[in-house]
Every structure is written in C-alpha cells, then in structure tokens.
Write a protein that binds this DNA or RNA. Structure first.
Lengths: 224, 224
DNA sequence: TTATTTACATACAAGAATGTATGTAAAGTA
DNA sequence: TACTTTACATACATTCTTGTATGTAAATAA
C-alpha cells in the first residue's frame, strides 16, 4: 500500500468526513455503517479507525467542522462596548439565519443533528455541547438587551431576560421549521423581517422602527 | 399458554406501547430491540409481531397515542366564528405549551420524536405527518390573524402571514428549548407571558395590552 | 360439542456491524 | 543506510437483531 504524506492523510480524513456527512444525511447515523463510509470514501474501515476512535468520534468531528466556526464567531462578538447593543443582538440573530440559508454544508449538518441522529449514550455529550452553546448565546443576548435597556433603547415594560428567551426561541423555531421543510418558506427573505418585527416591538413607542436600518418587507400572500 | 380475552389483549398492546415509550426514551429508537421491549412488557417478540407489523409500526402507534388527541383538538377549534380571533390564536399557542408542561406522557413522546429517533426510510412518513400538522396549524393561525386584522384588532402594518410564521416559530422554539433542557426554564410560568408579549406587539398602538386578560409577569432576574 | 380463530410463545435461519489484532509498504528520522 | 513510525488494508471473532415459521392453549363461534 502506498503510504500517504501528512497532507494526503489530512485529505483522507476530510474525504471520510465528507462521505460520512452525505451518508448520515441519507441513511441516518445509526443505519450508516463504518463500512459504508469507508467504501464511499474509497477506503476500508481500517482507515477510519486510524483517524477516529469510533463512530461517535467521527460524528463529533463532522459536527465540529460546522459548529466550531460558529462558536468562535459567537465568542469574538462580545457586544459589550458597542454603542448600539440592539444592533448587535439583531446582527447575531440574522447572521445565524443567513449563514444557514447560504451554506450547504451547514444545511446538511443541521439536518443531520436535527433529524438524523439519536442523542443517547456517547451522543449525549453532543447534546450537552448544544445546551451550553445555547446558554452562552442566551447570556450574550440578555446582556445585550440589558445594555440596550440601560441606554433607553427598550420600552420600560420590557423584561430583558424574557425578551432574550423569546428572541432566541423565535430564531430557533425558524431554524427548525426551515430545516424541517426548506421549500415551505424563504428563510433568506423573511428572516430579517421576522427578527425586526420582534425587535421593533421591544423599542419604546417614541423611537418606532426608524431606529434601525431599513429592511425589505416580504410580499403579501396572494391568498384571500 | 393462557389465551387472553379481547380486553386483555388490548391491555397487552398498551403494555407494549408503555414499555416501548420508556425504552425509546432511554436507549433511542434504533438501539432498542423488539426483544428488549417484549422483555420489559413481560412478553416475547411474538406478542409484538402479533400487534404490530414491525418497529416502525409500533413507533407510529406510540406517537398516535399523543398526537391524535392533539390533532383532534386542533381540528375541533375552527376559530372562524369567534368574535375575538386573537384570543383564539392566543389560546391555541398557550394550550399546546400548557399541555406539554403538564402531561408527562406528552413530554416523553416529544423528547423521543425530537431527540431519540432518526427520520429515515419508513420513519419519513412520521416526519411528513409532522409537516402537514404544522402547515395546518399555520393556516389556522394565519386565518385567525387575518380575521383579527379585518376587525381592526391588528396594527395596519402587520403582515398576517409573517406574524403567523413568527408566532408559530416562537412557540415551536419554546417547545424545542424546553424539551432540550426542561430545568433551564419554567415553561408553565413564562409561556403565557412570552406569547402575550408577541401578540401585544401586533395590536394597534391605541388598544395596547389592555385588550387581553391579565397574565402574571415572571420575576425579574436577580443578576446585575 | 366441535371447529375455528385468537393471542401469544418458541425455534430457526441468516445477515450485518463492531472492535481488535495483525500485516505492510512507504514516509520520516538518525 | 537502517530503523521507526505512519497510514492505512486485511482477517477474525463475536454479538445483535430481524423476520418468519411453527407450536399451542384458550376464547369464541356454529
């Protein structure tokens, strides 16, 4: 057998992850054998066991290719020192939705982790990671909204914690529903309007919607 | 072997479904063998194959015990002729959340269909059923909001279709997040406030929040 | 009462997946 | 150059699971 150089080995690793991604998407994680993945990548199971401890480890690596960049993105944007915390929160929400709407790999992996895997045993740690990422996201949002409230950018009746929970649930719900059935709704088109609609409602009556940058309004449905 | 009467057979069937529900929750659907389910119900696989064609059929029956009542509930409430369509929409959203928050079987089954099953092959029909139920729910909501708009209960800037999408995503997101980590948030407590916060934002500026029945506001977080 | 069907239990056949152990040729290293 | 390690491939043993076929005793029907 021709032994590969380090670069080629890394390429092999990525070929494995690519093959796994497609097969997980099509067959589900538990019905995809390592044999199938190896064959799809033009290898044998030996190669997979060299690069990964087992299927859970492989799954984790596949997830990381998509999740790590997003977590880093979230970590970089502290949003503490911005003079418009609401714009930061808005950017967070819209960035995620836009990224999902435009990146095919992100779409595949989201579909897999939403509908093609069972969170039991070793997979529970993936779920735990999801929970922690969510809590982190919620904290960022709540802090942003709290800052906004302090600057008088929110109506005094608004509870920042509740508003953060609501906004996060809205974005999460949009993601889930779009992943469930992408052709039912134009995520890239409506996402901005939906987030803005939610955020506008939090603003004090005086400022209205004028405080943010304009966004396209989606066309009214043609049904009666 | 003592052959059972019809009632006893139906009891057996329910025992199988109960056992499956608990095992699916604990082990995930694909890692739960029919042998395990049979043993947990004090039976053998023969009994399961008598009552169900295969695991997918059993899973479907388990889902139906929870989903059928909810679908019937949704079907009964047309909401067409109510003089307050907004109250109908509000009731829809809050009922689902309340039901989830109080019914343990609903909680288990939601957890299973959200995180313990892979939607591939035969399971795809379960997913399709989910999509159709969602579309139906969205239609009801949109019609309710459209009626509300006609009666001047909504601000003229509100797009009923978009608002329905948003409200549904909000409720869906709340469900998903609560199922993901029930102890992180008090669904029964905050659900009402979150739905009301969303719906209040849709009302014309004049009517404000006074148009609906009062609801408890959750306590402000104690953090700085 | 006899015959039939029901509601299961038991037995069988057969594949499929995993983990590990071992083989191997080339890349890297001293 | 000789040795070691890398990056895989191959082979093996074992365990699970499914579907079906068949057995059977009691309930039900005629």
């Amino acid at each position: 057998m021709v032994r590969r150089t380090k670069e080629e080995a890394l390429e092999t690793r990525n070929r494995i992850l690519d093959a796994a991604e497609l097969l997980f998407l099509e067959k589900g994680v538990s019905r995809t054998s390592l044999e199938m993945i190896a064959a799809a990548a033009g290898l044998t199971r030996g190669a997979i066991y060299w690069h990964f401890r087992n299927k859970a480890d492989l799954f984790d690596a596949m997830m990381s290719r998509v999740v790590l960049p997003m977590e880093e993105m979230a970590a970089r944007a502290s949003g503490e020192d911005l003079d418009d915390p609401l714009a930061y929160v808005r950017g967070c929400a819209i960035n995620v939705l836009d990224h999902l709407a435009t990146d095919p790999r992100c779409q595949r992996v989201f579909e897999i982790c939403c509908h093609k895997v069972e969170y039991v045993d070793e997979m529970l740690q993936v779920r735990q990671r999801h929970i922690e990422a969510r809590n982190n996201c919620l904290q960022h949002m709540e802090r942003g909204l709290r800052n906004a409230a302090r600057k008088g950018l929110l109506a005094p009746t608004v509870n920042p914690q509740l508003a953060a929970t609501g906004l996060h649930a809205l974005v999460d719900g949009l993601i889930m529903n779009w992943v469930l059935d992408p052709k039912h709704m134009a995520l890239g088109r409506d996402a901005t309007a939906l987030v803005d609609q939610y955020l506008d409602a939090l603003r004090p009556a005086s400022s209205g919607a004028a405080a943010r940058k304009p966004s396209r309004r989606p066309a009214e449905s043609e049904s009666a």
